[in-house]
Simulated scan of single mutants.
Amino acid sequence: MDAESRIRAAIEEHWRASERGDIESEHAIYAADAMLDYPQSDERFRGRETIAAQRGGHPADRQRYG
């Protein structure tokens, strides 16, 4: 499998995990030291666990678009 196919497969699994509420699998796509930036509010979240906790605080329906 080429690099582009591996990336696409990881993203697809991320969305499937998100849709079924599997937070651990959903966030496995991120490196342990990943950073999530929200430039509009100047917020920055560091690390996979911090990102998961931040996203878990937003009780929204999760569905893929496009």
Rank of each mutant, 00 (worst) to 15 (best):
D2V: 00
E26Q: 15
Q40E: 06
E13C: 07
E4T: 09
H14R: 02
G57Y: 12
R44H: 12
E19I: 08
D2K: 03
Q54D: 06
Q40S: 12
M35F: 01
S18E: 06
R46K: 06
D61T: 14
A17D: 02
Y38N: 11
F45P: 03
L36M: 09
I51C: 13
E43M: 15
R55Y: 09
G47D: 02
A52Q: 10
I7T: 10
I29Y: 03
P39M: 06
D22H: 02
Y65H: 07
E19F: 05
Y38D: 14
E26G: 03
I11R: 09
D61N: 13
E43L: 15
A53C: 04
I23K: 03
M35A: 02
E13F: 04
A31R: 11
Q40Y: 08
A52I: 05
E43G: 10
A10G: 07
R16Q: 13
M1H: 03
E24L: 08
E26S: 06
M35V: 14
A28N: 05
R6A: 14
R16S: 04
R20L: 11
G57N: 15
R8N: 15
A28M: 08
R44I: 15
R8S: 13
W15D: 12
R64P: 02
S25E: 13
D61E: 08
A17F: 01
H58D: 09
A31H: 07
I51E: 04
L36P: 00
E19T: 01
L36I: 00
A9N: 08
A10P: 01
D22G: 07
D22F: 10
H58S: 15
E24Y: 03
G57V: 11
D2E: 13
Q63D: 01
A53E: 14
R48P: 00
I23L: 11
Q63I: 03
P59H: 10
W15V: 04
R62H: 12
A34S: 15
A52D: 00
A10K: 07
G21T: 06
I11K: 08
A3F: 13
R20C: 05
H58P: 04
G47N: 09
S25G: 13
I7D: 06
W15N: 08
A34K: 10
R55G: 04
R48T: 01
D22Q: 02
D33F: 05
G57L: 09
G21F: 04
S25V: 11
A60K: 09
G21L: 06
E43I: 14
